[in-house]
Design a protein around this nucleic acid. Sequence first.
RNA 1: CGGGGCGUGGCUCAGCCUGGUAGAGCGCCUGGUUCGGGACCAGGAGGCCGGAGGUUCGAAUCCUCUCGCCCCGACCA
Length: 567
Amino acid sequence: MYWSQLYVPTLRENPAEAEVVSHQLLLRAGYVRQLAAGIYNYLPLAQRSLLKIQQIIREEMDAIGAQEMLLPALNPAEVWKESGRWDVMGDNMFRLKDRFGRDLCLGMTHEEVMTALARGEVRSYKQLPQIWYQIQTKFRDEPRPKSGLLRVRQFIMKDSYSFDLLPAGLDVSYEKHRAAYYKIFERCGLKFLAVEAHSGAMGGSQSHEFMVESAAGEDFVAVCESAGYAANLEKAVSTPVPPAAPDVEGDLAPEEFHTPGQKTIEQLVAFTGVPATNLMKSVVYVCDDKPYLCLLRGDHQLNEAKLGSATGASDLRPAHPAEIQDWFGAAPGSLGPVGVKAMPILLDSALAGRKNLITGANKDDYHLRHVTPGEDFTAVTHDLRQVAEGDTHVETGAPLKIVKTVEIGHIFKLGYKYSESMGLKVLDQDGKEVTVIMGSYGIGVERILCAAIELFHDESGMSMPASIAPFQVVITPVYYSDPAQKEAAEQLYKECKALGIDALLDDRDERPGVKFKDAELIGIPYRITIGKKLPQGIVEVVTRRTKSAEEVTVAGAAAHIAQLLRG
RNA sequence: CGGGGCGUGGCUCAGCCUGGUAGAGCGCCUGGUUCGGGACCAGGAGGCCGGAGGUUCGAAUCCUCUCGCCCCGACCA
């Protein structure tokens, strides 16, 4: 491709609307233009890059025996009603009606359509397993699109679905995907983490997310490199830091004491002189319309996902102050478990075995000391606590750190959720009907592009991994008007093409500085500069990421680039 | 949906408070001089100031409504 024939509208300044780096650079480097909130035009550079990403995905999916299909984005309501998700998806689903008034929607994921397809086709265990996938546009009416291409309302997703006769088969399909995802993200040049993810209230299911560390991310992950542990904070477990003081000894009875105006843990710590680790915090949640009292160590935070797992509820919210007043006869800030009968009490496992703690008295401005779980109240113990920075790995005791990440892929053992609700069954060897077990696996294509930019950029612009850069090399004759440089550039371009190198020839009549700046901004990994040493048969090869230059012969330049690309 | 910010040539912004009929830099076009890190000179094109209504002799500017975009939160398959 010749630059003069490529539409690359680079900008000198960052557009005001962009805040995160990948968004700024995508606009500035002429990759994308916004049409509306969360809806983008992909210009030639973005499209080239996205196609390369898709090709990598395609090759690795095909390599595990997955079969590419293309399903409609426009879906009839019926299949979504069968699974129950027509209602569950709520406002996140784009809905429309056809001319006869029939309900339709734009697909946000394709479990329903894939299951409906399989149900109509697959009859026998002999036809299993199957892995079906597509690379297709998804639509989600996000409450708040943001961060450029990171959270949008229309995006490209690789989604695949596995169909197996038995759980052991699902395990195989899942492992195939996990291995393929490693290869895909490695080939895309990303540094990423595979983390254990929250598997929802379905039980027994397994889930991993693939995350790239980035300040622009929205998910937090607990990581312990030495132990090889990484988990989404929704799911992560750890050993908390030990209590700052030993528990008061003795078989003591609860004892009320006056704490005027002391509502928060910080206030209580200051007032009593007792460290937060020796206080017991009471948090009231309403889970699927039922109230629960959750007890945590004073310095710990409740994790809603874990509470959801503990209660089996899907709809969680903190109780309103009025409800709390009703149930406890006291305001938040003086709540505790002693004497509570109206609701189940859940004790965080970090408090198991502790004794003589301070907690609320269910009486405004009073607290109790010497409260011991199991003696002074009865509770069910669950892991409810959010892992915090400074906690340690449960087995090795090595410290955990918490990092902010962008999710680029997610693999999930669905189990029977869709096959059961939608009636996907096959006959087994004994002629008996068996419900098929499924998995689903997604990759956000644009997010790979964003993550690469977030990972690899500097003050000059992007520094794309060679495998997904719009071009692998840019040939920059300093003066294209110089016949010798022009001829050398065109010759080099042909040689690159012959070697299968995706080359861009900057044939523009621009000053050298402009060409260098543009090439660096759009992030092409290698540049061949043809300039003053051409008469001696020498050109310069510049590596974008390091900005290091080396001189090579014109004759050997294309082969040199090919060598660099081979890595 | 709650809170905040912003809408003025393609881009970044000034002008608004204190109403008098629109500016700068970059980009774009033409000509010339330049030319290894976003050149310079001269000339030029391009905006009913997001939209509607109101106040006023007169509105980019004041008032009301509305639409859009961004950020924080809520939410998030």
